[in-house]
Design a protein around this nucleic acid. Sequence first.
DNA 1: AATGAATGAGTGTTCATTCAT
DNA 2: AATGAATGAACACTCATTCAT
Lengths: 195, 195, 195, 195
Amino acid sequence: MVSEQAAVPRRLLQQATKLFAKKGFDRTSVQEIVEAAGVTKGAMYHYFGSKDDLLYEIYARVLREQTAQLEKVADSDAPLRARLATAASDVVVSSIENLDDNTIFLQSMHQLSTEKRKAVRAERRRYHERFRRLIEEGQSGGDFRADKPADLVVDFFFGSVHHLGSWYRRGGPLGAREVGDHFADLLLSMLRPEA
Amino acid sequence: MVSEQAAVPRRLLQQATKLFAKKGFDRTSVQEIVEAAGVTKGAMYHYFGSKDDLLYEIYARVLREQTAQLEKVADSDAPLRARLATAASDVVVSSIENLDDNTIFLQSMHQLSTEKRKAVRAERRRYHERFRRLIEEGQSGGDFRADKPADLVVDFFFGSVHHLGSWYRRGGPLGAREVGDHFADLLLSMLRPEA
Amino acid sequence: MVSEQAAVPRRLLQQATKLFAKKGFDRTSVQEIVEAAGVTKGAMYHYFGSKDDLLYEIYARVLREQTAQLEKVADSDAPLRARLATAASDVVVSSIENLDDNTIFLQSMHQLSTEKRKAVRAERRRYHERFRRLIEEGQSGGDFRADKPADLVVDFFFGSVHHLGSWYRRGGPLGAREVGDHFADLLLSMLRPEA
Amino acid sequence: MVSEQAAVPRRLLQQATKLFAKKGFDRTSVQEIVEAAGVTKGAMYHYFGSKDDLLYEIYARVLREQTAQLEKVADSDAPLRARLATAASDVVVSSIENLDDNTIFLQSMHQLSTEKRKAVRAERRRYHERFRRLIEEGQSGGDFRADKPADLVVDFFFGSVHHLGSWYRRGGPLGAREVGDHFADLLLSMLRPEA
DNA sequence: AATGAATGAGTGTTCATTCAT
DNA sequence: AATGAATGAACACTCATTCAT
């Protein structure tokens, strides 16, 4: 009644995350999820309105955490370049730590219902915009080159971050923080003012 | 009996591409594809062994074209930095021109059968490696900084490229080549040797 | 703790009646009923053995009332034609006043369990037979034509009564008693002995 | 390959009709229907879009036939009273001959989708109105009493007709035509002008 | 008297694929 | 080269009911 019973909803989310990441949302059946979690379908539908809901809850948690983390760093009183570097490195580290959620994020967002997709997109935009303002701040302050649209730089960088799931392997030559620092360094390099 | 009948297999591939990109591989039924192409299921199974086959053919074509393009540029006798810049800009332009195929590529690869996935991965690796060698060449020649693993830079860059489908909109403020040149420029900037 | 709490079982029956009439027995879920009544499933199963039970209770009440009403009228010492007219008009009025119960009656009887269906049928037969005896009395006494089987006349008439739910609308041109009187009049007319 | 294979769609409709009448639409599963018809679910969905469709097709056929029959009789050049008597008797006979379809009609109409229900209702109204015009014709011509709304008489009569399924048993004391003639006679009697 | 988590059998429907023609 | 009827397994989801509390 203690360890096995780790809260049914939590167990469902855990197993769903694992399976969605491994096989994709559409290729994972509700049956597989509930079996992996050791409960019945009825139990799942008692807690979640639909399979979509499961996906959405996974998204929502990751988004919430990453946004919170970004805002904390971006609003700190460290120098600008340090704030951007930390934010960039942090998002890489957290993406690697939650590689499954991240993979799902990237691959399955378009399978959500329109309504929920809207909610996710809104949250994502908020994240994107906070990051962009950091860059714009540096551009107007002279820290960063101003000849690249800040939006484009953000999209460029987050493409790289989202792509981590395609190549990063735990136990490989680089640790999460190492990759994060490399990525942050590359980002700052590309923003260095010419000459 | 001439224009309408633009080769059944070609029409099937065209419509499948469009639909896979719009709704995802799993969410697209064979019925929808054949209806969009104006043929019957039997006809489709006459030309393609399975739905997977359709996906594979789409991949194969894009991969073949991009690899050919890269090799042509990489093996030319232009200066190294120009070769990398051209290769980078070109892959962005071609990705934008085939935004649908690109989206499919990114989202549906893991839905292929193991065997075909292997073939695709092999071709992709070939592409990746040619690109990496270009960078390594610059690193050993002193054109580029050597403190970043070339692999990591390639993954960083192709993350950005694959991500184009998530934000690039035709008719937006930037043309395909403009984005390509910005991306190439950012890539070269991040590889600039430290003062 | 007084007005809102108008006896849980009563509230359940009320809401069930409304919902069954609107959507049909099978299309109404226990969940909907308990939500409409503002209680939980457990509470419902505390008072009623099953969903079927709910339906049965609704039937039983209506049947009991209509049978009682009929017997009072039929056994009175008014002249025969007046007794039949009153009985006919009354059943129309009461059917209109309980249009919901009536609709359910008609549409859902065959969804009861065999055992309960038997009980309902027995009660209905009793009703039917009391009505028939009224007609037979008139036929042997010369009040009514004798060339129509009394059973057939009863079925003819109650078809019309059961059908009320399909066309009668409150607020329409005719009041309940008006329809009742028309129906009673039609019944007596069709029983008039031939010149 | 001849008798057993009596056209799959026809067999499906036959069995569906029988089962819907016996157990009600909601209590009949698609599985039961296809088993009774000796085909698979896939086959059923090849011919019918949904379970609803099956119900609708049953309705549509009966309605079409009854409307055609009514119009033929009503537009003939027989005397008015004869035309009404024939129409009334005919609809009883055809209702008895298709007792199953009739039962379904009465019990399951509200389970159709809104759209299809509209179509059915429109056709029914057309039927109802042709019948009503027949009565009105007699009322203005002096054949029938004029103190009863024609609409009410039609509803009264069709209640009786729809109710046939609840009591008429094949092999009982009365044949279909006998019941039809009794019903027609009762209808004419109730419309006789008061002495 | 009442809760609400959990069950498990069942529902209508979809779909890639096969095959006789 | 192409049809279209048919399969059969799978799917997401529903629901009346139970039971420990």
